[in-house]
Design a binder for these strands. Structure first.
Length: 285
RNA sequence: GGGGAAGUCGCAUAGCGGCAAUUGCAACAGACUGUAAAUCUGUCCUCUUCGGAGUUCGGUGGUUCGAGUCCACCCUUCCCCA
């Protein structure tokens, strides 16, 4: 019998956690998180990690399992998630995948092409070159070494250009040669449930949740992470704004207000991403 | 009551005789193959056959070929002195 992966997606604060827990109880199974920030053990309040009660009511995987000092990414996530899911399928017929990181979910649903990880020092070198030489020069290098990808990249997005150059310099091969865009066929069925809420309601929930995070001690959590604030994992809504507050760039009230705004914008980006996800059964809450 | 400063497209801001008007934020739409809660793009007075067309800068008059910009009066706000 085919196993089924129930995948719960939706914007932040749409109620995925509660929904997934309910579903897990009904199906008598466990939950695999698909959240690029909840995966870090140092981040808790600000990333809306499920509460202790929630975590103990249903077993969750891939939450608080890595350190922010680790170089985590979508490909590592795919491997881990698939391993956990397969392992759970030996015990259950159904498993739940729940999260808001579109790219991570996509990596599980469709797979992600095999290409090399970037060593930190190479990334640092390229970032340095971006600063000193500028994007134009790097684009020229990309054009010379991978004309195909050069034609498709977003030439104004340094991240994209740098990633391509990382792979090119590391392997000596064109970045495009790795981008096969092959969909991996999984040996289980996938049912996608999308949670939807009106914009107004979502905004209200985001505002309320932000206030609760503050009440729960987000400020202290962020303060304790100041030494790590330059790590990629910490350029996260809820953290950067409070770092700015600690740097006296903005007031505390401004920081809180900005967290709300940026969370709303993040939710919007998630909705844009999920809108194009195929075979989603949308549930309006 | 007297003196001063100011009113610009949601908010903030530029503009000092050629302007549908600068910039930032917000908003809206979108992109996304290893940093993805990241990063990036477009739109943002109205209409448009995308060539343009029509209405704008507190109000009303005026000067000028031409006014957000100059003048007069009025309205509103803020500051200082009473």
């Amino acid at each position: 019998m085919r196993k089924t992966l129930y995948t719960v997606i939706g914007a932040t604060a749409s109620g995925k956690t509660a929904y997934a827990i309910d579903l897990a109880k009904k199906l008598n199974t466990e939950i695999v998180s698909a959240d690029s920030r909840q995966i870090f053990k140092e981040m808790n309040i600000g990333v809306a990690r499920p509460s202790e009660e929630e975590l103990s009511s249903v077993k969750h995987h891939l939450i608080a399992s890595w350190s922010i000092t680790e170089n985590y990414n979508a490909a590592r996530y795919e491997k881990e998630a698939i391993a956990v899911i397969n392992q759970l399928f030996t015990k259950y017929d159904d498993v739940i995948l729940c999260g808001g990181s579109g790219m991570y979910i996509n990596a599980v649903i469709n797979g992600i092409d095999d290409m090399p990880d970037t060593p930190t020092d190479l990334r640092n070198t390229l970032n340095g070159e971006l600063k000193s030489k500028g994007l134009e020069i790097l684009l020229e290098e990309l054009k010379a070494k991978d004309e195909k990808y050069y034609a498709e990249v977003d030439k104004q997005n340094p991240r994209r250009v740098l990633r391509a150059l990382e792979v090119i310099r590391l392997t000596g091969k064109p970045f495009s040669s790795f981008r096969k865009n092959e969909n991996t066929v999984r040996n289980f069925d996938i049912k996608i449930i999308g949670l939807q809420r009106s914009r107004e309601e979502l905004t209200e929930r985001i505002n309320k949740r932000t206030d609760i995070m503050i009440k729960d001690g987000l400020t202290e959590e962020v303060r304790s992470l100041i030494p790590f604030k330059s790590l990629p994992a910490l350029s996260t809504v809820g953290y950067r704004e409070l770092f700015d507050y600690f740097d006296n760039k903005i007031s505390f009230d401004q920081a809180v207000e900005l967290i709300k705004i940026h969370t709303r914008q993040y939710a919007k980006r998630q909705m844009t991403w999920f809108r194009k996800t195929e075979n989603v059964q949308w549930l309006t809450l």
